[in-house]
Simulated assay, not measured.
Amino acid sequence: MTRKWPARVSAATAAALALLLAAAAFVAYAWQPSPAPYDSAYLDEIRSQYVDTPVARFHYTATGDGPPVVLVAGGAMWLHSWRDTVPALAAGHTVYAVDMPSQGYTEVVDGDFAYDLEGMAAAIEAFLDAVGLDRASLAGHSWGGAWSLYFAETRPDRVDRLVLLDAPGLDAERARQTEVFKVPVIGEAAANLTTRDRYADSLRSAFSHKDLVTDETIDEGWAWFSRPERRDAFVSLALGLDYDQTHARLGDVTAPTLILWGAEDAWLPATQAQGLADRITGARAEVLEGCGHNVHEDCPDAALPLLTAFLRQ
């Protein structure tokens, strides 16, 4: 027997849903949180450089001397993520750590910029052109790895070596932590409602060694991610990254490839490391025990020697 709810209950439910949707829309599109008042100590430690392109005014550092390596950080992260990696590689390379559109202190100037795989790959290309690099090795973490992978697939003549660190690229399980940001209205509202504490919890979930996530580490990321335009860009990326595209072109990667993954990755299962290696010609996968999603920060003593040796071959 079909049960009919009283009209007054249905009307009340509809009114409540309408009120909730209106509140979500207000939080998503009308209300803007205030940026965090924080002066980055890391910016005082490094030699920031900027280069102007039609895409963005890129913030980056260039350290060391030798064959070029470009480091691309993950989503909701910036070049601070590579603070241990840069000195490890700089003994034998010129190391470019760059903030991509949506990250850190790079400012997008293209009003029509698309936060999708092609858009981010084009941004990598614009940066390489601007700093005078015809070819370089690329190392990308998480979303930055997906952007780097797509760049290597579509512009293979510009990549010497490729390192993917806990990087999505398979038509496989997605990170559940970012799925909410793909829901229209709800995603924008969730980004605006992200507080420093929630940002900190998310960052800790990417580490096995939680003690490494210090207040300074949290504030160095939160300082810029708290800006409304960065939150908006993060949501656009969550919506725009289609890993069916990277999966379909894995056979187009010609650069020697190393895949590093944390065995304790709580964002993406470590089985995806071998899944990528099986589909990229000549690729090698290394899964590091006791390490989380931010493998290069969580386990630098284990990850960086592998990264350094591979790039020096």
Rank of each mutant, 00 (worst) to 15 (best):
A190Y: 07
A24L: 15
A167Q: 01
G104M: 09
A7P: 03
A238R: 02
V72S: 03
T217K: 12
E153L: 14
L165N: 03
T281W: 14
Q272H: 10
P300K: 04
A15Y: 15
A172N: 04
P68M: 06
A22R: 07
V108M: 15
A200W: 15
L19R: 00
A16C: 15
H293K: 06
G132I: 11
Q177S: 07
P269R: 04
V51E: 08
V98C: 12
D84S: 06
D244Y: 11
T271D: 11
A167D: 01
G132Y: 15
V183A: 11
R227N: 04
A175G: 09
A121R: 06
Y105I: 03
M77I: 07
R3W: 15
S208N: 14
H141Y: 12
L71W: 07
G74A: 07
P168N: 03
P300A: 08
W224R: 04
L237M: 13
Q272E: 13
P67L: 10
A122M: 12
P68C: 07
F151E: 01
A22D: 13
Q272V: 08
E216H: 11
A123Y: 14
D112W: 12
T63N: 04
E45Y: 07
T281Y: 15
A12P: 08
A97M: 02
R3C: 13
L203Y: 12
V235R: 03
D39S: 10
V98Q: 05
Q313F: 15
C299H: 09
A28Y: 06
W267E: 06
E173R: 12
W147V: 06
W82V: 00
F127K: 00
P269V: 12
A302S: 14
V95D: 00
G74L: 13
W267M: 06
A62C: 10
S137K: 08
H80C: 08
G240H: 06
A18C: 08
P256N: 05
P269I: 14
R155Y: 15
V27I: 13
T246N: 00
A189Q: 10
E153R: 06
M120Q: 02
P35R: 05
L260G: 00
L276Q: 06
S34F: 15
L164N: 01
P67C: 06
A88P: 01
L89S: 01
V163Y: 08
M120G: 01
A167T: 04
Q177A: 10
A266G: 02
E188S: 08
V159G: 03
W222L: 08
S81R: 01
V180C: 09
W222K: 00
A172S: 13
S48K: 03
V55T: 10
G251R: 09
D298L: 09
V72M: 14
S148I: 11
H296T: 04
Q274C: 10
H93N: 03
E107G: 02
L19P: 02
S10M: 13
L117N: 00
D252Q: 08
Q313N: 12
R47T: 04
V9I: 09
A91S: 13
S208K: 04
V69R: 00
D265W: 12
S236C: 12
P305Y: 10
A22P: 11
E45P: 05
L71Q: 01
E153Y: 12
T257E: 11
S40M: 11
A136M: 08
P6C: 13
D157H: 13
S137H: 12
A167W: 02
A36K: 02
G75A: 14
L239G: 08
A18N: 11
L43P: 04
L20H: 08
A25N: 07
E286R: 03
P37A: 13
D278L: 13
A206Y: 09
W261I: 01
Y115G: 00
